[in-house]
Design a protein around this nucleic acid. Structure first.
Lengths: 212, 212
DNA sequence: CAAATTTTTGACCGGATGGACAAACGTTAG
DNA sequence: CTAACGTTTGTCCATCCGGTCAAAAATTTG
C-alpha cells in the first residue's frame, strides 16, 4: 500500500518535526491556500530553500499533517466499546472528544478547513476508513438500544451531534469566546461545556416533574 | 454610521447581484484567500476588469457578502421569544436553523470559513451585536428555567450546541454524506437529522423506564 | 442624429509565491 | 587531513494574482 519509509538521519527527523509543528500552526489558521511556504519556514526558524530540502512541495507537508491527524483524531471513537455501561461509555467518549478540542484545536481546525473545502484530498478516506469505523460503532450502539440501555434513536446522527458539539469549541473558539465575554470565556469554558454536554446528551431538556 | 447608499442604475443592481451570487459560490468553497477574482468573474460571466468596475476590491465583495449573510443568519435567533410554549419555541428554533443549513449551505460555509480563520473581519460584530443578541435570549431562556418550564442548564452552551449541530449539516456536508453512504445520505438526511435533534434536545438519551 | 454618459475589454504592472539550482558551509569517516 | 556526504543559503525564475488604465463599445440623453 505505502512506499517503504525512507531512512532518515536524526537531524532529518528533528527538522521534519519542527516543520510540521510550524506548518500545523500556519495551515490551521490560514488554510492550505492562504498559507505560504515563507510563513512556515519563518515559523520553523529556517530559510525557504532549507525547508524545501526536507519537504519538496507544500502539498507534501499538508498531506503528512493530515495523515497523522486522522490517526489520533479517530482515537476516541475507536476506544468506544461495549464492555462497560453504555451511558458511561458515551460520557467518556464525549469527554475525550472535548478534551481533544481543548488540547488540539489546531488539528481540529486543519480538519475543518479540509472538509469545508469539499475534502478534495481525503475523500477516499472518509468513504472508506471513517465510514466503516462509524458502521462498526453504530452496531454497538444499536445493541445498546435493543437491550434498552439507551433510548432508541438514530445512532449515526448521534455520532454527528457529538462531533459537532465538541469540535465546535475548537473550530468556533473565537466566536465562543466573543459571545461568552471575558468573564465566562476564560479557561473554565471547557468545564462548563463538559457539564452542559453531559446533561444534554444524558438527560435532555425536558423536566422530569412535568410542569408544562 | 454608514455612508449614504450610492444611487445605482438598474444594470448596476443586477450585475452586482450576479457578482455576489458568483462570489458566494467561490468564497464559500475556497475561502477568501483561496478565491481569485478571475474565478468569480468567470462564474459571473464577465471579464475581471468588468467585475472590478462594480466592486473596486476583492475585499469589498467579501464584506458585502458577510454583511448580508449576518442579517439573515441571525433571523431565527431573533424570532425566539417567550410568548409561546418554551419547548415549542426551542423546537421551531432548531428546525429553522436546520432549514437554513439545508437551504443556505454556502452562507453557512462562508461564515464558518471566516470564524475558522479567527474572524479577522467581523470580530467587532461578534463582540457587539451577536453577543448582545445572545444575552437577550439567554435572559428569556433563564426565565423559562426559573419557571420550571425547562430543565436548568447553561443557556449559552445550549445555544452553542444548537448552532453546532445544525450548522454541521451544512459545513461538514461532504463528511456527513460520505459516512451515511448513498442510501442514507440522500435528500432524506435532513429529515432524519431533524427527528434526531428534536429528540436529543427535548428528551435526552436516558430511557424513562430505568433499565440500567 | 450627436453629444454625453455608462459599460466592457485588452493590455499591462508590480508584488507575491511556489519552486529550482548551484555554490557554500558543516560534519563525519577513513 | 581530506574526501564524501549531508545541510544551508542567496539568487533566480515562471506563474499567478490583485488591481490600473486607456480606449473601444454600448447605452442614454438632449
Amino acid at each position: 500500500m505505502n512506499a517503504p519509509a525512507p531512512r532518515r538521519t536524526r537531524i532529518q527527523q528533528e527538522k521534519r518535526e519542527l516543520i510540521l509543528e510550524a506548518a500545523l500552526e500556519v495551515f490551521s489558521t490560514h488554510g492550505f491556500r492562504g498559507a505560504t511556504i515563507d510563513q512556515i519556514a519563518e515559523a520553523a526558524g529556517m530559510s525557504k530553500p532549507n525547508l524545501l530540502y526536507y519537504f519538496r512541495r507544500k502539498e507534501e507537508i499538508h498531506e503528512t499533517l493530515i495523515q497523522r491527524l486522522l490517526d489520533t483524531w479517530l482515537g476516541p471513537l475507536r476506544e468506544l466499546d461495549d464492555v462497560g455501561d453504555p451511558l458511561t461509555e458515551l460520557r467518556s467518549y464525549i469527554r475525550r472528544k472535548l478534551e481533544m478540542a481543548r488540547d488540539y484545536p489546531r488539528e481540529s481546525r486543519l480538519f475543518a478547513n479540509e472538509i469545508l473545502q469539499g475534502a478534495p484530498r481525503i475523500m477516499p478516506l472518509l468513504e472508506g476508513e471513517l465510514k466503516s469505523l462509524v458502521e462498526e460503532k453504530v452496531a454497538i450502539i444499536k445493541g445498546w438500544m435493543r437491550a434498552g440501555k439507551i433510548v432508541r434513536t438514530d445512532p449515526r446522527h448521534l455520532i454527528f451531534s457529538i462531533w459537532a458539539t465538541t469540535q465546535h469549541y475548537a473550530d468556533f473558539d473565537v466566536q465562543v469566546r466573543a459571545v461568552l465575554g471575558p468573564d465566562l470565556g476564560g479557561d473554565g469554558r471547557f468545564e462548563d461545556a463538559a457539564r452542559f454536554l453531559e446533561q444534554l446528551f444524558l438527560d435532555g431538556l425536558k423536566p422530569k416533574t412535568d410542569a408544562n
